[in-house]
């Protein structure tokens, strides 16, 4: 199994520890992932802004970078969703089709490919899950409240398997945090309000550590938590799992 690590641009620059945790966690699970240095971005920021055409060279660069690998794993469901769904704009060569199918969110990869649903380790904190919309509704990594009252999902199962952990019951299980890529600046007012409301739900229900598998949502939520100086720690799921699994 030849696995590449895709570290999205903002994680590379601002959250290197999440990339490191992802790499180390995969290693502990027996997967030696490789980081192809020529990688840049999936192109989503441009495409979501209405500039898909300008993103096409980025898509091609992405495919060239990763076409030799069996899997491309990223600690960000949103980028993976973009590759899977929106690389349909490229000519569907064998390489393009392969890369679209090979792209996995980290938690999805652990659950679906490695078939790991429980992990040994303890994390004795009250943990609130933030389900990223692209991971949940796009990649179907968790049940959706629009469809069913049953709360279940890959991250939920992995986290619930840790000793001593208590998962927060939120009033709104899976409402969007309001990040939305360039939305966070083009509609800054609404974006901030959505994030504040999301964080308030966690505060109200006792979250100590807020986690998820998509660092972009977490970057936004962390910005709000720090501005309001709330007693909540924001961590990517890879950081928690890498920390507890030996």
């Amino acid at each position: 199994m030849k696995v590449a690590l895709f570290v999205p641009c903002y994680i590379d620059q601002f959250y290197p520890q999440v990339g490191i945790a992802t790499l180390q966690l995969l290693e502990k699970l027996g997967v030696q992932a490789h980081f192809p240095a020529q990688q840049t971005c999936c192109g989503q920021p441009l495409a979501n802004s209405g500039c898909e055409r300008d993103a096409l060279p980025i898509y091609k660069h992405f495919v060239q970078t990763f076409s030799d690998y069996d899997y491309v794993v990223a600690p960000s469901g949103s980028c993976v969703y973009h590759v899977r769904k929106h690389f349909d704009k490229l000519e569907q060569t064998a390489d393009v089709q392969h890369v679209r199918g090979a792209a996995y969110d980290l938690i999805d990869f652990i659950s679906t490919v490695l078939k790991v649903e429980t992990l040994p380790g303890a994390f004795p904190h009250k943990v609130g899950l933030h389900l990223s919309c692209h991971g949940q509704r796009g990649l179907h990594q968790a049940n959706e409240s629009e469809m069913t009252p049953v709360r279940d999902g890959q991250l939920h199962r992995l986290m619930a398997s840790l000793d001593g952990i208590e998962l927060t019951q939120l009033n709104r299980n899976d409402e969007c945090c309001g990040f939305g890529g360039t939305f966070c600046v083009s509609e800054a007012g609404i974006s901030a309000r959505m994030g504040q409301d999301r964080v308030a739900d966690h505060v109200l229900n006792g979250t100590q550590v807020l986690t998820g598998s998509d660092m972009s949502c977490l970057m936004h939520l962390e910005g709000i938590v720090r501005r309001a100086q709330l007693p909540i720690r924001v961590m990517h799921a890879a950081e928690i799992l890498n920390g507890v699994v030996t």
């Binding site: 199994m1 696995v3 290197p16 990339g19 027996g30 030696q32 980081f35 910005g223 709000i224």
Partner: peptide, 30 residues
């Protein structure tokens, strides 16, 4: 408007990675 910017780390992931002993790129068994 309502958010702090991320705290900028001293080095990026790729800078960190470049300093690690590089594994050979070969298939692995989980």
């Amino acid at each position: 408007v309502a958010r702090e910017l991320p705290e900028a780390p001293k080095q990026s992931f790729r800078e960190w990675y470049a300093k690690q002993p590089q594994p050979a790129v070969q298939p692995t068994q989980p």
